[in-house]
Simulated assay, not measured.
Amino acid sequence: MAGPLTRFAIRAAYHARQLPRFAWYAAHAAAVSRLAAKARKEEGESKRPRAHTAAPVPDRDSLYEDMAALFRQDLANVEAGIYPLPADHDGSLVTRLRRSSLFFEDLPSVHHRRESGGHSEVLTEETRGKRPRYYLQNFHFQTGGWMTEDSAQRYDTQVEVLFSGTANAMRRQALPPLQQVFAGRDQRQLRLLDVGCGTGRFLDCAKQVWPRLPCLGIDLSEAYVREAKQHLQRWSWLNLVVANGEAIPLPDASQDAVTSIFVFHELPPQVRRTVFREFARVLKPGGRLVLVDSLQRGDKPEYDGLLELFPQNYHEPYFAGYIEEDFGALARACDLTHTRDETAYVSKVMVFDKPS
C-alpha cells in the first residue's frame, strides 16, 4: 500500500497522463457529433428510420460521472499495486495526428453507409470463403471492416472516440481477476491466451504487469495482427498469429488464463458457444477465463436504452442477441464456473473458472 506522499505522486502522475488523453478523445467525440448534425441538416430528412428506444438513456452528466468512477477504480488498482501506472502507448503527437486524420477522413464514408444501410462491402470475390461470413462485414460501418491496413490504423482512435478515451481503462479491468490467479506464481511458467487480440492493446496492458509472462494473441485479421506486432514490439515472451477462436491452435489444458476483450458482442449466437467451448478446452484445470465486453440488459437499467440504440446507429448485427445472452448457462454447458461479474462504465467484466 502506498504511503501518503507516494500516493500523492501516483495520483498526480495518473492525472497528468489520463486527463489530457480524455480531453483529446472527448474533443474528437464532440467534433463527430457536430459533423453528423451538419451532414443531416445539409441532406435533409434521412431515409433511414430514426433510432428510437422507450428504455431509459443516461444523460451526459450521468455518463461523465460513470467515466469518472471508472478512472477512480483504475487509479485505485494502481495504488493497490495490482498494476503499475499505466502507459497507453498512443504514440508521438505526429502519430496521433496521423491517426486522427485517418479517422476523420473516413467519417463521410461511415455516414453514407449508415444512411444507406451499406455494410457488406468487405464481402468480395477476393475475400469470400477466406474468413467466416459473419466476419466479412463493415462493423461500425467503417471502411474495410477488419480486413485492411487503414482499418487497423484507424481502429484504436475509433474505439477511444466512441468511449471518450476510456477504452484502455475498461480493458485494464481484466487485470485484477488475472492478478488473483497469478499472484505468487512464477510468471515465466504461466501461459496467457488473448483471443481476438486486435491491435494488441490489452496485451500491452498485461505485459506492463507481467513482462516475462508468455502470451499468445490470436486474431482473424492479418492486418490487425501486423498492427499488433508493430505496437507490441517493445515486449518479448509474446507471439501473435492469425487464427480463429472457433478452432484455437493449442492443445487441451495448455493455458493458465484466457482473455477476450470486446469480441463476444460481434459473434453470432452459435459461434459464441463454439468459441466458449474452445476457451474451456484450452484452459488448464484451475485456469481462469476473463471476458470484457458491453453491458447487458439489466446490468445498469438506466443504460438499457443506450444498449438498444447502439446497434441502430452502428452496424452491430449480433449486439441485440448479445445483451440477452446467458453467460452463466454458456459456462455451465462447458463445465466452467461463472465466478462473478463487475461493471466498468459501459463495459462488463465476466470471470469464469475451470474447476481444479
Rank of each mutant, 00 (worst) to 15 (best):
L190W: 00
L291H: 09
A76C: 04
A228V: 02
D59N: 10
V258A: 01
P177C: 10
E125V: 05
V122M: 03
H315A: 13
A16E: 07
Q230F: 13
R48D: 05
A320H: 07
A54W: 11
L107M: 07
S294I: 05
L107T: 07
H265C: 00
C197H: 09
P58M: 07
Q173T: 04
P177T: 08
F262C: 01
D156N: 06
I248S: 09
I218C: 05
S260A: 07
V209K: 14
K229L: 03
V282T: 09
L175S: 03
V282F: 05
Y64F: 15
R48G: 12
S294D: 08
Q189V: 09
K348L: 12
H338E: 03
L238S: 03
Y64W: 11
L291D: 10
R113E: 04
G217Y: 01
S294M: 13
A30G: 03
T124A: 06
A243Q: 08
R99D: 05
A333E: 15
S33N: 05
P49Y: 09
T53D: 14
C334I: 12
R273V: 02
V195K: 08
H111E: 15
A69I: 07
R212Q: 15
V351W: 01
F141I: 08
S347P: 03
W146N: 10
A37E: 14
A16G: 13
L192G: 12
F22H: 14
P86R: 06
D90G: 08
T259G: 13
D66T: 11
A333H: 05
R133F: 09
W235F: 15
V32L: 06
V161P: 04
S109W: 08
A333R: 11
E115V: 05
N138W: 01
R171P: 05
D299Q: 05
S120M: 09
V78L: 01
H140A: 13
A39R: 15
D219L: 00
L213E: 02
N138F: 00
A257S: 06
V292L: 08
V271D: 00
L309E: 09
L63D: 09
A30T: 11
D293K: 10
E222F: 00
D156M: 04
A228D: 00
S347F: 03
D88A: 14
N138C: 08
